[in-house]
Design a protein around this nucleic acid. Structure first.
Lengths: 358, 358
DNA sequence: GCTTAGCACTCCCCATGGGAGAGTGCTAAT
DNA sequence: ATTAGCACTCTCCCATGGGGAGTGCTAAGC
């Protein structure tokens, strides 16, 4: 909202920033006297009071009750994130430490992205003291690298799926036919030739078309191969990783048990979380969702910082931080940014040799 | 403690049972008047008071403060679990419902034990309203069914491990040699011939012996095969699944946030949980650990009901429930019992055709 | 006209204290 | 051995009131 930006003079902006800055560090309503003293304004508390009253009228601040100090509204935080954060603060890059910690913890895991993401959420949460969250690539983020088949028991076969992103999925399929190992090798070769390099989503669509079109075509091995592939690809979904509950419980926001219950119910519901995060999956760079901007009722008191990590130049999955609206946006944002870039780099190194021109 | 049993006459036992029964349903200290009325004793409150005072002297009950009612001690619960539970209560088998729910949710998952166990904890927690917990088979619970190898990239190979318990582990190994697919097939055949049917732990020991003994023997393919196998087997560990935090937060025990923090810290530490559970892994039947009997400091206020599930007749992993000491032991125990048996059955059906005589 | 000092006012927070209620232990009577 | 009666203890709840922090408004000052 560039309008808002224009509505505020230098002085108001400074006051708004001071209130938010103070409130982020300490969740007490901020009073006029405190602002003048702590932030060394050349005005008396009375002047600051007038300014704060104006800011409240404009919707940037609010009062818990008459005769308490002001606290930022979601709109206030939004303004802060968009206009104030960078210019008011020299962005201290304490991120060497983070990168070091990421490197140390993640470097061995680059072949197994699920463990990798799980560890990532741990690192995010210990560094931010909020919830760390990660979503693994879904059907349109994962590119098939290879598929392997072999007999598992008399009537079952094992399918192993490798993707460029380092995801390894296995599935045991019950099959009415019994395939010889040779058959399976042939099928695997066929599927690899046909589908590797495509995303799971593309493969799904392709299978769908193929089957619709070629019902007549009855090369039985191929049609069996396709249906096999369909079975595996059908249940391909994102995984969600969240950690740091004990971190976030330390915040005064969660001294009320009801809040804790609400939060734990929400994050136990993976579907809700995926829905929440997926809307961000196609945006570039770090996304910030503040409080009520959120779609999930139980999360209206929380903010989300998220960014996609990529495989090649295609968005794969999402990493982020969930914390209270009173969040240290500045460091949270750079934390998420650095982490997403780091994951992208890891995937890049792992996937380079495999990426296929199309 | 058979001594205790003898120390208590019929009447005292009835009172003890009444106090525990009442307290389990409602966490208020139980008074003498309440006991006489609610449990239809033929004595006056004064008599009950005397009995309760005796029970307190013997350590079965305690008072939060003078002039409050009595609450059970851990020793009281222990006595209840060992002597009173079965005889005082007709064990209502509401477990058709549970089995149905297990069947519905788990039947499709029998080939993937991790998802299976995860769902199991969910079922356990929704039925008990406590925490559901499951530990997957560790090195001495898992029997190798099959090992598969194939090239993954120039300098890496993929190893897939199947166990009788339905565990499928994959690992990407960086290797200084480059193996041809043919080599890998040979190696896999060799390893399967040599090791399938043995537990991971046995394989570890065996590898160790072999390598020590046959350092001289330098059939290079075999020695490479062994070292390959060693790499995979080395990092084989148990997984822990826990769910139902939001269930357990509903209990009045957790109206204090400190308690919640403590609990969430504890269950976030998988190592501690494994340590806690592993001690039970070799016992038969359902185990009950009450409050301070526990080794972990933060869990002294909790009880654990756990049972091993088996593969064949060998204990594989553990399932259980974690709740407050004031737990509905009776139904928790049969819940865990039924669940463990069900898992055993599923494993049995999946593994029968594969079990190998030795 | 902007700024500020002064002041009355509002509202939260917390310590205090008293009363109701529940339950006990003891004693004396049955 | 059991029980009625009673004094006593302790918690919980609520009402009360003072202290403190902060506001809004008004009128005076630059």
């Amino acid at each position: 909202m560039p309008d808002d930006r224009d509505m505020l003079d230098e002085r108001s902006i400074k006051v708004l920033w001071a209130v938010i800055h103070s409130y982020i560090n300490n969740p007490d309503p901020v009073g006029s006297r405190y602002v003048t003293r702590k932030y060394a304004f050349d005005f008396s508390p009375a002047t600051i009071r007038n300014i704060m009253a104006d800011l409240e009228d404009m919707g940037f601040l609010s009062q818990p009750h008459t005769s308490a100090g002001r606290i930022p509204t979601d709109k206030g935080y939004r303004f802060y994130v968009e206009n104030l954060m960078d210019e008011m603060e020299e962005n201290v890059s304490v991120h060497e430490e983070l990168i070091e910690s990421l490197t140390k913890r993640l470097d061995d895991l680059r072949e197994d992205i699920y463990t990798l993401l799980d560890e990532t959420t741990r690192t995010l949460s210990t560094h931010s003291h909020y919830l760390g969250i990660a979503v693994s690539p879904g059907p349109d983020g994962s590119t098939l690298r290879r598929i392997e088949l072999f007999p598992y028991s008399d009537d079952r076969i094992a399918v192993i799926l490798f993707t460029n992103e380092g995801i390894i999925k296995h599935k045991i399929l019950k099959n009415s036919f019994s395939f010889s190992r040779n058959d399976l090798n042939k099928i695997a070769r066929y599927l690899n030739r046909e589908f590797s390099g495509y995303t799971i989503k593309e493969i799904r669509r392709c299978l769908f078309d193929e089957m619709a079109r070629d019902k007549a075509l009855c090369d039985s091995l191929i049609s069996r191969a396709l249906s096999l592939c369909g079975d595996v690809v059908a249940c391909y979904g994102s995984n969600v990783f969240i950690s740091g509950l004990s971190e976030i419980l330390e915040l005064p926001e969660f001294s009320d048990v009801e809040k804790v219950k609400e939060l734990s119910r929400t994050i136990e519901d993976k579907h809700a979380v995926i829905k929440l995060i997926d809307s961000l999956a196609n945006e570039e760079g770090v996304q910030v969702i503040i409080g009520t901007e959120n779609t999930i009722e139980e999360m209206k008191a929380m903010s989300i910082i998220a960014s996609t990590y990529k495989e090649g130049d295609k968005p794969a999955g999402v990493v982020g931080i969930i914390g209270p609206t009173r969040m240290d946006y500045s460091s949270a944002i750079s934390l998420v940014d650095v982490t997403a870039r780091y994951l992208t780099k890891i995937l890049d190194e792992g996937g380079r040799q495999w990426r296929r021109e199309r």
